[in-house]
Design a protein around this nucleic acid. Structure first.
Length: 111
DNA sequence: TGCTTGACATAAT
DNA sequence: CATTATGCCAAGC
């Protein structure tokens, strides 16, 4: 179990909760918002530890390339895509158009 | 202490 | 474009 510290998780959730509906962010961007670039993988673990009934909009966090992250969990990937499309996020093939839906880093400064 | 693992990122091919 | 190779960082063994 590659769990991350509770404090780190809380900080990650704090940032993710600030992402407005219809916008997305890359793992690396979330890490950067925590003033800790390079922690993108840990951000992924923090989200993986979320309970299914969480209030955190985890589906708005995808890879910087625009691809949906969870490849080892098809069920979650499909749900994530469905949730995003329901919020108005458009897909170009199998990836999100980050240029249009990527959130500008200035919008959230540690929550 | 050193190797493995993972919802990643970036550059090279 | 897609695929592969490297670099990353923290936690578990």
């Amino acid at each position: 179990m590659r769990a991350v510290s509770e404090s780190f998780k809380e900080r990650v959730y704090g940032v993710v909760r600030v992402i407005p509906a219809g916008r997305v962010m890359g793992y690396g961007h979330v890490a950067a918002a925590l003033t800790q670039p390079g922690m993108s993988r840990q951000v992924g673990w923090a989200l993986a530890a979320l309970p299914s009934d969480t209030s955190v909009p985890w589906h708005r966090v995808i890879r910087s390339s625009g691809h949906i992250a969870s490849q080892g969990a098809p069920d979650r990937a499909l749900l994530q895509r469905a949730l995003l499309e329901a919020e108005g996020v458009e897909f170009l093939g199998d990836r999100v158009d980050m240029r249009l839906f990527g959130l500008p880093p200035q919008h959230f400064f540690e929550a």
